[in-house]
Amino acid sequence: MGTDIERKQRDEQSSKDEDAITFGWDGVRVGFLTCLPVALGVGGYGIAFGVLANQAGLSVAEATLMSGVVLAGASQIVAIELWADPIPAATIVATVFAINLRYSLMGAALQPWFKQLSSRKVYGSLFFMADENWALTMRDLRSGSGRGAFLLGGGIAIWVFWVGATLVGAVAGGVVGDPTRYGTDFILVAVFVALAAELWEGRPSLVPWLVAFGTSLLAAQYLPGRWYILLGGLVAAGVEVIRYDR
């Protein structure tokens, strides 16, 4: 009985996912404004990255360019922490690859809505995808808004603050100091707790969430690097595929 109810809930969600998706300035505007508070917290990490990049020997231009092109805070900070002379290119590439593989799962989650958009709109939006605006976009699309440009608008807000904060950290890091002492590192934790509560769908969410949590803990304990980020999502996704097929 429980399985039938869960399958019915999934079918209802799938039908909602088929609603018409628009891509316009309204979606960009709403996404930008919604993500602004989160972008402020991202800015704190941007300053920290700028300070670390300066200490590692990157110029202001190099640090700013890296943030503008990569736009991946966790992997950028890890890459800078591994920076040395000579540069351990293979280690940096493998570590960053492991961290960023989670974006493949995040992008797949958007597929029910983004399949209605052109490749130019999809890939242009995905360039600006970060953990924060992805979570907010999932909440917005699940509400039935149909705003396909929400991800792009939120990503632009995060990009502006991330790149601008990197510049500040690289130029005036010695004056600003460690931004985490002001509590900015807790802002993103609080945001993700709130977003997790919004994405909770009741009993159907319990199994995949517990599987992802348990897998991540075990992987973090026994595997080097950041593979726990990807493995938690992959194992949970696999469990859901098996449960859905039944």
Rank of each mutant, 00 (worst) to 15 (best):
T91L: 05
T91A: 10
T91K: 01
T91H: 00
T91W: 00
I92Y: 00
A94R: 00
V96H: 00
I99Y: 00
N100Q: 09
L101H: 00
L101I: 11
L105S: 08
M106V: 10
M106E: 14
M106Q: 11
G107K: 07
A109S: 15
L110F: 08
K115I: 05
K115C: 04
S119C: 01
R120Y: 05
K121G: 03
V122Y: 03
V122C: 07
Y123V: 11
S125T: 06
S125G: 06
L126M: 15
L126T: 02
F127A: 06
F127E: 07
F127D: 04
F128M: 14
F128A: 10
E132L: 08
N133F: 04
W134R: 02
W134M: 03
W134L: 04
A135I: 09
A135D: 12
A135H: 07
A135G: 12
L136F: 08
T137R: 11
T137G: 12
M138L: 15
R142V: 02
S145V: 08
G146M: 11
G148P: 11
G148S: 14
A149I: 08
L151W: 11
L151C: 13
G154C: 11
G154H: 06
I156P: 09
A157T: 06
A157V: 02
I158L: 14
I158V: 15
W159I: 06
F161R: 06
W162K: 07
G164E: 08
G164T: 09
L167Q: 03
V168N: 05
G169W: 01
A170P: 01
V171P: 00
V171L: 14
G173I: 03
V175Y: 11
V176S: 05
P179T: 07
P179W: 04
T180H: 14
Y182D: 02
G183K: 04
